Simulated assay, not measured.
Amino acid sequence: MTVRLTLISPATSEALREVRFDDESPLDPAGTARAEAAAAAIAPPTRAYTSPSLRCRQTARALGLRAEPSAELAGCAMGRWRGQTLDAVAAAEADAVATWLADPTAAPHGGESLRDVRIRVAAWFDALSDPSDGSEHITAVVEPDVIRAAVLHALAAPDEAFWRMDVRPLTALHFTGRAQRWNLRIGSTP
């Protein structure tokens, strides 16, 4: 039996538009409207989860999901960079940003490294048990960096490929797995 897992990225928010490290800003009205419009395309899951961030929780709600927040699915903890735009941080700490973008083990912001995010997300994936009747479908609304980490894990790709993926708002990716082996089916906007 296999687990079917769908990961959905959050709808647009001011922080997402401004390329700002999440600061718990809410979805913008257009993002909420798009998520509500997409709700009919979401297959009812057996279980639903969400990253703990406000934008993910609001997206899940707008999609009609009764999702449980999961700390294991949190976005990368950005330490002192939280709430700042990438441009502002790059202007103030150019070398630190360059290191962070080039080295998946670096955490110059005082938060979590991208490798740590990948390890955390991989552990959550691999802890999902095979359903006895084959009917388990899990949906989770998660931060873009969680989706990147999941793809790296499923494909056994190197950590350095993290920044080679663009994750657009309200994009769904579909995974199937069993015995800690995952396959990826590239999805579309719900």
Results as ranks from 00 to 15, higher is better:
Pro104Met: 12
Asp159Tyr: 06
Ala150Phe: 04
Ala102Cys: 09
Leu128Tyr: 13
Phe125Glu: 03
Val146Met: 06
Val146Ser: 03
Arg148Leu: 04
Ala122Arg: 15
Ala98Asn: 08
Ala91Cys: 00
Pro158Gln: 07
Glu112Gly: 13
His109Trp: 06
His109Ile: 01
Pro131Trp: 07
Ala107Glu: 05
Gly134Thr: 06
Ala122Gln: 14
Ala156Arg: 15
Ala156Ser: 15
Thr139Phe: 02
Ala140Tyr: 05
Ala94Phe: 00
Ala90Leu: 02
Val117Trp: 04
Leu152Pro: 02
Ala122Asp: 08
Gly134Gln: 07
Glu112Leu: 13
Val117Gln: 11
Ile147Trp: 00
Ala94His: 09
Leu152Cys: 02
Val141Asp: 11
Thr105Trp: 02
Leu128Asn: 13
Pro158Asp: 13
Asp130Thr: 15
Ala122Ile: 05
Ile147Pro: 00
His109Asn: 13
Pro131His: 11
Ala140Glu: 07
Ala149Gly: 10
Ser132Met: 05
Asp95Cys: 00
Ala90Glu: 10
Trp100Ile: 01
Pro158Lys: 05
Arg115Ser: 11
Ala102Phe: 11
Val89Asn: 01
Val142Arg: 07
Ala123Glu: 13
Ala156Tyr: 03
Ala140Trp: 06
Ile147Leu: 06
Ala91Pro: 00
Ser129Cys: 06
Val142Glu: 05
Val141Thr: 11
Pro158Ser: 10
Ser135Lys: 12
Ala107Ile: 05
Glu143Phe: 01
Asp145Tyr: 00
Leu101Pro: 03
Ser135Gly: 14
Ser129Arg: 15
Val117Gly: 06
Ala107Asp: 09
Glu160Phe: 03
Ala154Ile: 07
Asp159Ser: 07
Arg115Thr: 14
Ala149Phe: 07
Ala154His: 08
Glu143Thr: 09
Pro158Trp: 00
Asp133Asn: 15
Leu155Ala: 12
Gly111Met: 09
Trp100Asp: 02
Ala154Thr: 09
Leu101Cys: 14
Ser132Pro: 04
Asp116Leu: 11
Ala123Met: 03
Val117Thr: 15
Val97Ala: 03
Asp116Val: 08
Leu101Ile: 14
Gly111Glu: 10
Ala88Thr: 09
Asp126Phe: 03
Ala91Asp: 13
Ser135Cys: 08
Pro144Met: 09
Ala88Gln: 10
Ser113Cys: 04
Glu93Tyr: 09
Ala123Phe: 01
Val89Pro: 01
Asp145Val: 05
Ala102Val: 09
Ala107Val: 04
Thr139Glu: 03
Ala127His: 15
Val151Leu: 15
